[in-house]
Design a binder for these strands. Structure first.
Length: 456
RNA sequence: GUGGUUGUAGCUCAGCAGGUUAGAGCGCUGGAUUGUGGUUCCAGAGGUCGCCGGUUCGAACCCGGUCUUCCACCCCA
């Protein structure tokens, strides 16, 4: 008989107990902070109709969609001519009508419109779910990964931007990750494109600018020329790109340069307001103004935020921004939203590599009872019941195996205490408790055992 | 989507210019120690050399294809 090697699809992963312990820790920190600021959870399905998903993140986004083959006779809509044409784009639309979601923001917009009568605006929600992208996997890039989104929708207030930055700062501070928080505003980028006389090319220009750290100033120039931006326009851009100084100095120079652009000045005003409100909070990380920050998603219209881990080449671990009209395509106008998304898997990678998980994260069982035999295991059952009633996680080894085997089970499972109840202990009505880290052993009554373990 | 890279024991890797029975460390199982793990000593189990095909007297090694891994680009969490 032949059997297949067990495998999972490219870019997907299994998570074992120790990974899950660490992942749960990340999720719980994030959730705790989200809730503290008044956000409520929702979930949406793994799959959405393609009509919801397509066209929201540009052509690139559409390519990254995992599509789901129609059930049953999926060829029923396909004519002989369609088949002969062998046009993959046309055919795939005939045989698929659902896809796996590749972010949480677009399904959220759909949710908001669909449930608008049940929602009190402004609506603050968080959402922690997996998303799927048919990308080619590489470092920090997976085909299935978790996003942790917080959004506030139905308010234009810049307080929301401020709150989200504060939340991000708090999350990373709690996790112990050193980060760089970068902020910019699409209106500023639009203003820059406007004074360049290339307003309609704004997206292409910003994407080129975004690469400045990677390809340098000359690289950006080259890229802009390639996409057909005239030299005269590029000359207007260069001084802005070479701004130096702190937040205030850059803002001052910007206002000067963008004085002829109404939208640009609006962006400057928004950034300044956010900056001012932020000064009322104590942040563990200073927020940097990064004029080269663009972000590819084309639904952003105002503030854009990106957070990267200090000295780690893994891309951004958190990103987001304001979108003024995401619900418009689903028929609900004038609803502005702003949100950020934490990449749980990249956060995990950063923390793992920097060794930021504490030992306790992987501890589940506090005390294991050695199983000496039938008589002893029966005796242990009532004891263990009382230990668990005291909210101490305890387990009894299920087999009458050698003590050596039972001890190494406890050791491998990172169990800190082993309780031994054999004939001697039963006669004395006591329990021998061994500390697996120190090797120290003491005989205790049940009450003493419980109070000792509660302190640990 | 473009370019490159990897695949040998559960894990990390050796394996000389194609030549007999494919190796190490860690882990695992058992014993030294019949109520004591993590240290030490001894023994043992475990491999269609990713898969398919080709060249050759002979292939883990050479060639083609395929899958997979990882990386860069694109883009992104």
């Amino acid at each position: 008989m032949t059997f297949q090697k067990p495998t999972i699809p490219k870019g997907s992963r299994d998570f074992g107990p120790s990974e899950m312990a660490k992942r749960d820790y990340i999720f719980s920190v994030i959730k705790t902070v989200f809730k503290k600021y008044g956000y409520q959870p929702i979930e949406t399905p793994a799959m959405e109709n393609l009509s919801t998903l397509l066209g929201k993140c540009g052509e690139e986004g559409d390519k990254l969609l995992f599509r789901i083959l129609n059930s049953g006779d999926f060829l029923s809509n396909v004519s002989g001519n369609d088949l002969k044409s062998k046009d993959p784009v046309k055919l795939i639309n005939l045989i698929t009508e659902k896809g796996l979601k590749y972010d949480l923001t677009v399904p959220f917009a759909r949710y908001v419109v669909q449930h608008q009568n049940e929602i009190t605006f402004p609506f603050k929600r968080y959402q922690i779910q997996p998303v799927w992208r048919a990308d080619r996997p590489q470092k920090g890039r997976y085909r299935e990964f978790y996003q942790c989104d917080v959004d506030i929708i139905g308010s234009k207030s810049l307080l929301s931007e401020v709150e989200l930055i504060k939340i991000a700062d708090e999350v990373f501070n709690r996790l112990g990750i050193k980060v760089i928080i970068k902020i910019n505003n699409r209106k500023i980028l639009a203003g820059i494109a406007e004074i360049m006389g290339q307003a309609e090319q704004m997206m292409k220009i910003t994407i080129a600018i975004d690469k400045i750290e990677k390809i340098g100033l000359d690289g950006v120039k080259h890229e802009l020329l390639e996409i057909g931006i005239p030299q005269s326009s590029i000359d207007k851009l260069l001084p802005i790109l070479t701004f130096t100084g702190d937040f205030e100095e850059k803002m001052f120079l910007l206002r000067d340069n963008l004085s002829s652009s109404k939208i640009g000045l609006q962006g400057v005003y928004e950034l300044e307001t956010v900056r001012e409100y932020l000064s009322f909070f104590e942040l563990s990380t200073a927020v940097q103004l990064d004029l080269s920050l663009a972000r590819g998603l084309n639904y952003y219209t105002g503030a854009i935020i990106e957070i990267v881990a200090e000295d780690m080449k893994i891309g951004s671990i958190c990103g987001g921004g304001r979108y003024d009209d995401l619900t418009g395509v689903f028929g609900l106008k004038d609803i502005s939203g702003v949100g950020i998304s934490f990449g749980a898997d990249r956060i995990y990678d950063v923390m793992d590599q920097k060794d930021l998980f504490s030992e306790e994260t992987s501890q589940v069982t506090k005390v294991m009872f050695v199983n000496f035999g039938e008589k002893e295991e029966k005796y242990c059952l009532s004891i263990i019941e009382k230990v668990r009633k005291a909210e101490i996680s305890a387990e009894l080894y299920p087999d009458h195996s050698k003590i050596k085997k039972q001890m190494s089970y406890a050791n491998n499972k990172n169990i800190k205490f082993v309780a031994m109840v054999g004939e001697d202990e039963i006669n004395e009505n006591k329990i021998t408790l061994r500390n697996m880290t120190s090797g120290e052993q003491i005989r205790l009554t049940l009450g003493e055992l419980i109070s000792k373990l509660q302190l640990e």
